[in-house]
Design a protein around this nucleic acid. Structure first.
Lengths: 145, 145
DNA sequence: CAAAATCCGTTTGTACACGAACAAGTCAGA
DNA sequence: TCTGACTTGTTCGTGTACAAACGGATTTTG
């Protein structure tokens, strides 16, 4: 029968207690908060834009590395940012493989206007925790990357 | 010029300090560990299969609710599990809209065989933390879902 | 200097993830 | 009883995410 398997395995594995499951749920909640508070742009796109504003002209792959997106992912993100005129690309004269990505005026303005909201989104995500717990949580979470 | 925007915003927003960014990175690392330790199935698919083994016959949407996947997502996951003969679907005679999802022998066996690995994956993900830190982290993470 | 190793950007294929809309089935309340 | 409000499963469109492969450019190294 099946219930021996079930009982045996259930002793070892409870979905609700696995880090992966909790990380997924917490991310989902965070992304919902983001979408609600900054509906005009994606979390990922805002991260890439913010990093690009911080770094200045950067090659596409380098921006991907700086934001934790692989080459295929950052390609799509950069394409969508370009389609929305938040960034532009200009060829690097030194290296013919490379294109520098640069934020447009609109991109820079969006970042300047919405950076505060970005912080507010983090605050809202962490709201269920006390200030002390938030600090602890962030410290531990940072160790898991 | 641009650097006033940049400096001003940079004071408020540092990507590396935002929860969303850290959650994304931690999830990425976890998923990489999962893929390495259980290459034959996806994290999401294993979660759905495990929950289904625990619950027994369940409708597709109900399984989605139990695993935190919306209707469109669980549809794809269930389709792939069915394509791999890990679950089957039989119509509910009481409610003609509904199909019960049920793990196959192969699905049950996979779960029984790999549940331990699931726990090991969680352990490996949390390995950078001490036992005490792990408990704290899980407790706080649970509050953020 | 030439070959090997890297890096750049791109494409293809697969898999989540969610909003929005839909048809069909079910159920509660007027 | 019938009508309106749900629920179930489905589809479509968009956006992340990664593996694997590729051609072309550049750098390293023998």
């Amino acid at each position: 029968m099946h219930h021996e398997f079930k009982d045996q395995a259930a002793n070892a594995y409870r979905l609700e207690e696995q880090v992966g499951f909790l990380l997924r749920r917490a991310s989902q909640r965070h992304l919902a908060i983001f979408a609600q508070m900054m509906p005009e742009i994606t979390s990922t796109q805002f991260a890439a834009l913010a990093k690009l504003c911080e770094l200045g002209p950067t090659s596409q792959n380098a921006l991907g590395r700086a934001t934790g997106m692989d080459a295929a992912t950052i390609k799509g993100v950069a394409d969508r940012l370009r389609a929305r005129d938040l960034i532009t690309a200009t060829p690097d004269p030194q290296d013919r493989r490379r294109h520098y990505l640069i934020p447009t005026e609109a991109g820079l303005a969006l970042y300047a206007r919405r950076a505060e909201t970005g912080v507010a989104i983090s605050d809202e995500t962490l709201a269920p925790l006390s200030a002390r717990e938030q600090a602890t949580f962030l410290e531990l979470l940072r160790k898991l990357c």
